[in-house]
Simulated assay, not measured.
Amino acid sequence: MKLPASLFLALLVALPAFAAGPATLAGIEQGIVAVHGWGSTPADPALARPHIIVGITLHHQGETYKAGTDPAQYLRTLQRWSRDTKKWIDIPYHYVVDLEGKTFAARDLRYAGDTNTTYDPKGQALIEVVGNFEDVEPNQQQLDAVVDMMALLVARHGLSIDSIRGHKDHTQTLCPGKNLYRYLESGYFRHKVALRLAGIGRI
């Protein structure tokens, strides 16, 4: 008997985080570009706010990101702006996903992120996807990278799949943009993360 889609999703959401094999999780981690790989400079730990990860929040860049842009240069520019203009410890996000679906480590995950809006992101692992998703659509490589990153965070930090949110779920903002947010609103990300953790093939 075929399960109704709603029941199937509910069962997947209930799957424990440890369902993913270590090799799979290790493979996702190995694919992340480390901070030294894009030329990051050390943050001042005196400005840091240590925290414990209790959820995941998805953001978008909110600006046009042109094809051919060097992601390393983008990250270095964002880092300088974050420190010099905003006086933050570092890039506000912990991970950044580029146009090709490559994930870059940014702010140290041990430290709370920052935001231009009113919510306090302490306790949240922040993922930014480059582009303005009020105007453009995320591509499949970006969606897959977000699923992988969310699955890794859920597994590594013992999170509930229901802890996956978008920036606009915390405060009044357009972020992560209507064209990316609908993948949260529809349950797409939670569904795909559950499948990833269950080891049901490559998404």
Rank of each mutant, 00 (worst) to 15 (best):
V154M: 02
P92N: 12
D98G: 07
Q73L: 15
L78P: 02
V33T: 01
L109R: 05
V147H: 00
R76Q: 15
Y95I: 04
L153S: 01
L109G: 02
A112S: 09
D135K: 14
A67R: 12
G101S: 14
I56E: 08
S40P: 00
T41L: 15
G62D: 12
R83Y: 04
T103K: 01
E128T: 04
D135F: 10
I91P: 01
Q79C: 08
D120A: 07
V54C: 11
E137S: 12
E134I: 03
T77L: 15
R80N: 11
Q140R: 12
P50H: 10
M150L: 09
W81N: 10
S82I: 02
A34T: 11
A67Q: 14
N139A: 03
E128M: 08
D108W: 04
A43H: 08
V130W: 01
A145R: 03
R107M: 14
P42M: 10
V154E: 03
H59Y: 14
Q61P: 07
V129G: 06
D148F: 07
P92F: 01
F104W: 12
A151D: 05
P71E: 11
D108E: 13
L153I: 00
Q142K: 03
L47I: 00
T64Y: 10
R83F: 04
A67E: 14
A72S: 15
K122M: 12
T69V: 09
D90Q: 02
D144I: 06
A46T: 13
M149A: 09
L78F: 07
K87F: 11
T77C: 13
T115V: 09
I53T: 05
R49S: 10
T115Y: 02
G113R: 02
V147Q: 01
Y95K: 03
G55W: 05
N116M: 12
A105M: 10
D90Y: 07
I89L: 14
E63Y: 12
V129F: 03
E137G: 08
G113H: 02
A151M: 07
A106S: 06
I56Q: 05
A43L: 14
V130R: 05
R80Q: 13
Q79R: 00
D120H: 05
L126T: 00
T64V: 13
P45G: 08
I52G: 07
R107D: 10
G131C: 09
L78S: 13
Y93H: 14
V97G: 08
A67W: 11
Y119W: 11
R83C: 09
A34N: 10
D70R: 07
A125F: 04
H60C: 15
V147T: 01
R107V: 03
M149P: 06
H51Y: 08
N132E: 10
R49D: 07
A112M: 05
R107E: 06
A106H: 04
L109W: 03
V136D: 14
T103H: 00
G131F: 00
I127G: 01
R110P: 02
V136E: 15
M150Q: 01
V33G: 05
V130L: 10
L47H: 10
E128A: 07
T103D: 07
Q79D: 15
G37I: 01
A67V: 13
D70Y: 00
Y93T: 01
Q79I: 03
P71N: 11
G101Y: 09
K86E: 13
Q141H: 12
Q124V: 08
K102T: 15
Y119P: 09
Y93E: 13
